[in-house]
Write a protein that binds this DNA or RNA. Structure first.
Length: 403
RNA sequence: GCGUCGGUGGCAGAGUGGUCAAUUGCAUUUGGCUGUAAACCAAACGCCCUUGCGGCUACGGGGGUUCGAAUCCCUCCCGGCGCA
């Protein structure tokens, strides 16, 4: 068995919502928790020294990105955590998301939450496609695995479940993920079924590859797929639950309007004594939905991506800090926020930093945003422990969603 | 004073007889971003109008040639450079 353990501290009655503690070789994670995204072994713009003040308990790095650059240095350092100078728990994603973003998603602007009609439309070309293969994308899927063209230099690479696990062993995170196929939000039922079945076969192979390894300190999470189709999601959850994973991830795309129901159905099929991670989802309103449906941990690029591009989370919803109306606003980013940014700086200052393209603007904005989400999950956790999760949710959303 | 090159939208800078309200960059305004190909992307950006293959005024000022001028000619004003 791995060294990963999960303890449920409090289970909300008549609900899947719960507060717990996830134990790893590098310490514990109080859940529900927000996992900061550190794709290339850094939370973009944020120093590890800031982690405690920002409430960052754990990070998730990416197998594909570190494989393309940095793997040897990570191994030499003894793992992604020590490479970063971070002593806490770490995770690595398997590269399955890149199957999507460099595959059918390449050159297109596809959100995992686009309404179905919009999702079916031809995506908008966003980036230079010169690097693309003749297929117009960088990843080609077959039964055995995925052939990638590096987005960095066009070189050809191949990932299989075994290879992804091997690299993740080398990267040494506490929690690693099975290699899956993240499908496009507009994938039809037939393709979604095919991809899901393949993901299940890859899950078995990932698990076998992991168990063959002598180092069982790492925990392996299986990833539920099935897209926006409830029956596929349930089927996927059942199949993965029958495999001996140390925890579970839920990946892929959803329809915004029924994500709660789908997550709820999925999590009812997953073993309650194991932790559940919702991959890549993390707007504040989504966190409440996830927690209510039994999710323990979340990761999302939004706090750092929004932060870098001027989007700021506040109690009253998101704002665009570079906008003219904040240029002389002497309030903090979010009134009442206890983060290291809000206790010192004004909106006017940070708006100015963005307008003058100073590096510090995106840095401070990212810091605040990450704190906003880690703090929100900890407040959710406390509300569960106090037996007032629903009141807290309603109270928070009534102001956050008011705009 | 003579010669020469030039004066284009907030700025820089294309255009050099029609398809030019005028390429592009910056600035400005706004929107988007959900397991990061992203310190990014998109839209708007003379005035009027609800709209449009819409109307009006525009490329230093004035005048002219032409069916038609930011583009050619004359003149004036301003600037750079060279010579006195």
């Amino acid at each position: 068995m791995s060294s990963i353990g999960f303890t449920v501290e409090k289970q909300v009655k008549h609900s899947l919502a719960r507060a717990g503690v996830l134990h790893t070789p590098h310490g514990t994670i109080s859940t529900p928790a927000f996992v900061a995204v550190a794709t290339k072994a850094d939370v973009k713009g944020i120093s590890v020294q800031q982690f405690p003040a920002l409430g960052i308990q754990t990070i998730i790095a990416n197998t594909y990105h570190l494989y393309l650059s940095g793997q040897r240095a990570v191994e030499q350092a003894g793992g992604v955590g020590s490479f970063m100078g971070f002593s806490g728990p770490t995770m690595t994603d398997s590269g399955g998301f890149q199957v999507f973003s460099l595959g059918v998603g390449f050159g297109k602007k596809l959100s995992k939450f686009l309404p179905e009609e919009a999702a079916r439309e031809e995506g908008v070309t966003v980036f230079d496609e010169d690097l693309a293969t003749s297929h117009g994308k960088l990843a080609i899927i077959d039964e055995e695995g995925v052939s990638f063209t590096s987005h960095l230099d066009g070189s050809l690479h191949r990932f299989t479940p075994e290879r992804s696990i091997e690299i993740q062993h080398a990267l040494g995170a506490d929690i690693i993920f099975a290699f899956d196929e993240c499908t496009a939000p507009n994938a039809d039922y037939a393709y979604q079924t095919e991809a899901m079945d393949r993901t299940h076969r890859w899950a078995k192979r990932s698990l076998a590859a992991h168990r063959r390894n002598l180092d069982q300190r790492q925990g392996l999470w299986g990833i539920v797929q099935g897209g926006r189709f409830a029956d596929l999601r349930i089927q996927s959850a059942k199949e993965l639950a029958s495999m001996d994973f140390d925890g579970y991830g839920i990946g892929g795309s959803f329809s915004k309007h029924d994500i709660l129901g789908i997550l709820d159905m999925v999590n009812r099929e997953l073993p309650p004594e194991k932790a559940r991670h919702l991959l890549g989802i993390g707007e504040p309103e989504d966190l409440f939905i996830g927690v209510a449906a039994g999710i323990d941990t979340f990761d999302c690029v939004l706090p750092t991506r929004n932060g870098r591009t001027g989007g700021i989370y506040t109690t009253y919803g998101k704002i665009q800090i570079p906008n003219a109306q904040y240029a002389t606003d002497t309030r903090p980013l979010d009134e009442g926020c206890a983060c290291p940014v809000c206790t010192i700086h004004t909106r006017a200052y940070i708006s100015h930093l963005f307008r003058t393209h100073e590096l510090l603007g995106p840095v401070l904005a990212s810091m605040h945003n990450v704190y906003f989400l880690t703090n929100l999950t900890q407040r959710i956790r406390q509300s569960i422990l106090d037996g007032r999760f629903e009141e807290f949710r309603d109270s928070f959303l009534s102001t956050y969603m008011a705009r």
